[in-house]
Design a protein around this nucleic acid. Structure first.
Lengths: 210, 210
DNA sequence: CCCGTTTTGAATCGGGTGTTTGAATCTGTT
DNA sequence: AACAGATTCAAACACCCGATTCAAAACGGG
């Protein structure tokens, strides 16, 4: 209960930044939630922006330190790795209540309105490694050389299947198809997406390519 | 040059809202850009929020009045319709400089931080019809009954392939794979996504399903 | 021309913003 | 107990926000 002020600030700031984004979040509201004085953010972090970057660092570290990312070779079949990867990725992105309640939404805000410095941190720490692994898995599943652009398109197609439910959350809800939040629901949807992706990639195993 | 003040306001507001979102946009900045007095917003639209809704309505109207949406039956083969639909959708979402320079970004902002009232308008006017058509196309391509949830997952999988390049634009750019902006580039990427989607859907034509 | 309406303009209102100050309080050491 | 450093606090600073006021300007029909 008597957590350090800096800790409470970091936690409250995370929730607020995740809720409304960097610009719309107010230092006063964060400090109220953290039961700290406004000047505490200057004292402990230097400024609102530095507090935001600290939140980012913490979220990124939290995100990569959870369930380990399935890697090529963990399962015998690249397709099985892809299934496990999609499920892992979607749990990572969609799960809200347990491990990393804020990283997903922080990312969504940054995606639309990047804060200079913050996006690079997250891309380097999280997106880069994820994309690299997806790239390897896609290469293994496709099983032959395709053009560089086509290959990258396929990588981002797989990623799109995993993250869109999060990014378009509000629209999907409005359309009557809210993304799942329970582990079971996420895993079910991930199963569909994985099969979709595997078949989609299979189509590029033998076709012509410019 | 001597466009009506309300028109100039609408245009400037569209650009600013698209750039930074509703909350972060300032009436003063909009009026400066429109070379109008701040009071013009109240006079012509009533308030900042009503101005925003007007921008939304205009963007939605603009979006649906362009190139007509390919519909099932336009081409003989459902797969061909899907190809055309994906290309149309990606042009709609990714094209920045010509027809609807702002709707895509407005949508992106609303996706992350919905403004009460605005999202419903856009979903009803744009997303709903698009989703319904995708739903029909998916049903035709799959060619058999699948579970309701699975069907909707597949619909949104196809949509994800079309819109993710837009939503994740900044991240993709940071990762060294910026989404295409030219018509030719978009069409090339759409071709990859369409083939990916067709094969992905084919996988559900004969498989078991809960 | 006059007069009523529509439209613009500068100034202002309350309120919120991130940041800064300087004194008060707490904490640990001598 | 006395001191030094770390931490907290209320208050203020300078600035920006959206909304509003009311007078000046532009316009159009008589």
């Amino acid at each position: 209960m008597d957590a350090e002020t800096a800790d409470r600030l970091l936690r409250a700031a995370g929730e607020e930044f995740a809720r409304v984004g960097f610009r719309s979040a107010s230092v006063r509201a964060i400090c109220d939630a953290a039961e700290a004085n406004v000047s505490a953010v200057k004292y402990h972090f230097g400024s609102k922006e530095r507090l935001y970057l600290a939140v980012w660092e913490a979220a990124a570290a939290d995100m990569v330190s959870k369930e380990p990312m399935p890697r090529l070779g963990d399962a015998g079949d690249p397709r099985e790795t892809l299934r496990e990867f999609v499920a892992w990725f979607m749990r990572l992105v969609l799960t809200e209540s347990e491990s990393h309640p804020i990283a997903g939404r922080l990312l969504a805000h940054e995606t639309v309105m990047p804060t200079p410095g913050a996006l690079e941190v997250f891309v380097r720490r999280c997106c880069g490694p994820i994309k690299d692994e997806v790239s390897r898995i896609v290469e293994a599943v496709v099983g032959r050389r395709v053009g560089r652009k086509t290959h990258e398109d396929l990588v981002f197609a797989v990623i799109a299947l995993c993250v869109n439910a999060k990014h378009s959350r509000e629209i999907l809800t409005e359309l009557g198809h809210p993304p799942p939040t329970t582990r079971a629901g996420i895993n079910r949807m991930a199963g569909v997406m994985a099969e979709f992706a595997i078949r989609g990639l299979d189509g590029f195993s033998a076709a012509e390519d410019g």
